[in-house]
């Protein structure tokens, strides 16, 4: 099982996008030129793959030609074959994401604010978190059946812990002075939450959002792969069942693009909600 989007798993990197952009510029290469280089690199790698495949040096059965993969992707899209599957997967991922995030946020805030509960639940949460989640998939399949709910439950267990631990840390790491200041200005517990804790935890929550979006989709796809009647994971499993490696790669490619688009949207939202943050200057 792979984490689709694990490079953002670490603690919040303030102003990640902007620093990256600046660093690039500092190195003397403009953003536009870097795009060109990136395209060249991709073209070289794919071209080499294609040529080596056509020359028979790498086995076309295990590594289908990029042109064939693209053709399969196109046929899946043009015939509309992939869309019902994609829709199912997205539904599962969205539900897992929504429920997991809501529960993670709620429990994260609650435990961060009530020390007794944090100490009470801590060992149990650690235990559940230590469990490799994929082993839950079969049991969820038994409990919730082949439909979407077994995948939602599976995705939930992945999303929940990420959001929960990040929220807990985020709320606990709020600057003491900000809290004291707000209290001196007359903030009630509810107002503290709204004006201080939630905005302050937002950087942590966003770093968890990036990865939990990936996890929600991972959960859905892995769940489908293990047993389903629809979904992209199911489509990939079907293709594999008939040794259609082109189909497997096509499914991977489509998932990759979808996750990239979603991540882009999360980035947009993050940039808007965290617009108060100073641009990191080096």
């Amino acid at each position: 099982m792979t984490v689709l989007n694990s490079r953002k798993a670490l603690k919040p990197a303030p102003g990640e996008g902007t620093t990256a952009a600046r660093a690039r510029r500092r190195n003397g290469t403009s953003d536009g030129m870097m795009r060109v280089y990136q395209l060249v690199l991709a073209a070289v790698v794919l071209g080499a793959w294609e040529l080596l495949g056509r020359a028979g040096i790498i086995d076309e059965f295990f590594f289908p030609l990029p042109s064939d993969i693209l053709a399969t992707v196109w046929s899946w899209i043009s015939t509309g074959y992939v869309f019902p599957h994609l829709w199912i997967t997205m539904q599962e991922a969205l539900l897992a994401f929504a429920v997991g995030t809501a529960a993670g946020l709620f429990l994260g805030f609650l435990l961060a604010r009530v020390r007794f509960l944090e100490r009470l639940f801590d060992p149990f949460l650690q235990m559940f978190n230590a469990l490799p989640r994929v082993v839950l998939a079969p049991i969820f399949l038994l409990w919730f059946g082949l439909g979407i709910w077994s995948k939602v439950a599976f995705g939930f267990t992945l999303v929940f812990f990420i959001v929960f631990f990040n929220t807990l840390e985020g709320v606990k790491n709020v600057d003491r002075v900000l809290v004291d200041n707000a209290r001196m200005l007359g903030a009630s517990e509810k107002q503290l939450l709204r004006h201080v804790f939630i905005p302050s935890a937002l950087t942590w929550i966003f770093s968890s959002l990036h990865i939990s979006v990936g996890f929600a989709i991972t959960g859905a796809v892995v769940g489908e792969y293990l047993g389903a009647s629809a979904g992209v994971g199911y489509a990939i499993a079907q293709a594999q069942g008939v040794f259609d490696t082109q189909g497997v790669f096509a499914g991977m490619f489509i998932l990759m693009i979808v996750v990239l688009i979603i991540d882009l949207l999360v980035n947009r939202l993050e940039r808007y909600l965290l617009r108060w943050r100073p641009v990191q200057s080096s």
Binding site: V177, L178, D180, N181, A182, H195, V196, P199, S200, L202, W276, R277
Partner: peptide
């Protein structure tokens, strides 16, 4: 406060 206590957001 001695430190900055304005809410940065």
């Amino acid at each position: 406060f001695q430190q900055d206590a304005l809410l940065p957001w």
